[in-house]
Design a binder for these strands. Structure first.
Lengths: 247, 247
DNA sequence: GATAACCGTATTGTAAACAATCTTGAATGC
DNA sequence: GCATTCAAGATTGTTTACAATACGGTTATC
């Protein structure tokens, strides 16, 4: 497996011990493969209902089935792919119902995060946000959707990372991953991208001025367009009736 | 592997298709093993820092390393065990900091859940809660901690299940799993168990009367004792200084 | 006597082979 | 012509064997 990185030492913490030197869990190969597949789904290179065959992925990533298998289980738990026993994995689409539910929880958690960010925010942190936002803006101008995606991701990770609650950060990230795939719908319209860009700039301003309520309102508003665009498109394709509850 | 159950057919939903008959993902062996290990940790039969050696677990569960491996990866993602490359898995304890953070998020989500429960709640659902609560009460009286644990679990799953948001339910469950292990601290004191019991009864009453604010207050209060007991015990054992940030 | 290099053992990580299961398509009977 | 049965191929699930790595003790050396 040649996807791995050099990897250096790090530490793990266990209660009752201070710092134990231990090999850092260098990104296991399986996780890297999972990331790549995730990216494919985000970019629309893999469509819902498409099968993910283990051997194909082995050839693609030059590895053995063990890692691919692990990656698929991982993606299954994230909700990005479904699995049918003895049949394998397939890219999983989301019903409007599911999208609405996920976004409701995202809003709750992201609002919580910005509520507990300690103010004022350090200038260095705001600087990092501005730096990433410059990349984001440039990528939109150039129509580089891949960079748009990743810089947008970084922006939110930095922003919510300010809240200081690791569990909250992790959970926000988890839910964001579940709907990575539907971004492409929102990104299809330049208007949406521009609006997101302006939201980010407004957020930075609110942060700089320690205006929490404004930040909360922006956070809520920022989450609106994506699910709406997705649901609209979904209904256009498959009809408006929500076909039976999702289990 | 002889842990499996008979397993029947079910259906999977994918967007754009109606109902596709498909083999129901019968609880895979790995998941069952993970549950058993989880239970061991909950019951204190496995202490933090204890190593989990794959071959030992294979012998114990009469299976092959593939499933054990998968189970360990699963528990790792849940945060119950840590892994050191080429060294294996070990039961992971939680720092007070982590516990506080997890409970903060739990409170936010569980309060959200009870806020969106559609009122009035169907009599049948209240009946199910009462039924489970009878088991809970009986188990406390008999000192059957295992049944206490599982009936308490059921109670909350039914309660939060009423909110109707599958993603929210799932996320609440995920966070609850992360702190399964610390229940034993709260359960050590009969007072705590009795208080939990009374909380449950009060919740049922509030549900029956559709008194949402009361339910929210009870939900918050119900989450207080466990982390407090754990943190107190932790500081007694390892000293009060929170040793270095938890990453 | 302390320290550094070495080797044996325990354990995980990787790979390949085998078995079980499902899908697909053709052949057969009605 | 249509449904049913059967067999072949494809894919996943399981098992076993092998290689790589890390730890612990022993020995050699200064």
């Amino acid at each position: 497996m040649m996807v791995g990185k050099p990897a250096k030492r790090a530490t793990v913490r266990t209660p009752g011990s201070r710092q134990i030197p231990a090999p850092r869990p260098r990104e296991p190969a399986a996780v890297l493969i999972a990331k790549r597949i995730e990216e494919d789904i985000v970019l629309g290179r893999r469509q819902p209902r498409e099968r993910l065959i283990e051997q194909d992925l082995c050839d693609l990533f030059q590895t053995h089935r063990g890692d691919v298998r692990l990656a698929l289980f991982e993606l299954e738990k994230k909700g990005l792919v479904g699995r049918i026993p003895n049949r394998g994995a397939l890219v999983r689409g989301l019903t409007p119902q599911e999208v609405r539910e996920i976004y409701a929880v995202r809003e709750e958690l992201e609002v919580m995060a910005v509520r507990i960010i300690p103010f004022p925010v350090a200038a260095a942190d705001i600087g990092r946000l501005e730096e990433v936002q410059r990349r984001h803006t440039a990528a939109i101008a150039e129509g580089d959707l891949l960079t748009v995606f990743y810089s947008n991701l970084s922006f939110h990770q930095i922003l919510f990372g300010l809240c200081g609650n690791a569990c909250l950060i992790e959970t926000i990230d988890l839910l964001a991953q579940k709907v990575y795939g539907i971004r492409s719908y929102a990104n299809a319209f330049p208007d949406s991208l521009d609006r997101a860009r302006r939201d980010h700039l407004d957020m930075i301003k609110a942060l700089r001025g320690s205006r929490r309520d404004e930040l909360v309102a922006l956070t809520r508003r920022h989450l609106q367009p994506s699910p709406e665009a997705y649901i609209k498109d979904y209904e256009r394709r498959f009809g408006k009736a929500d076909p039976a509850p999702a289990h």
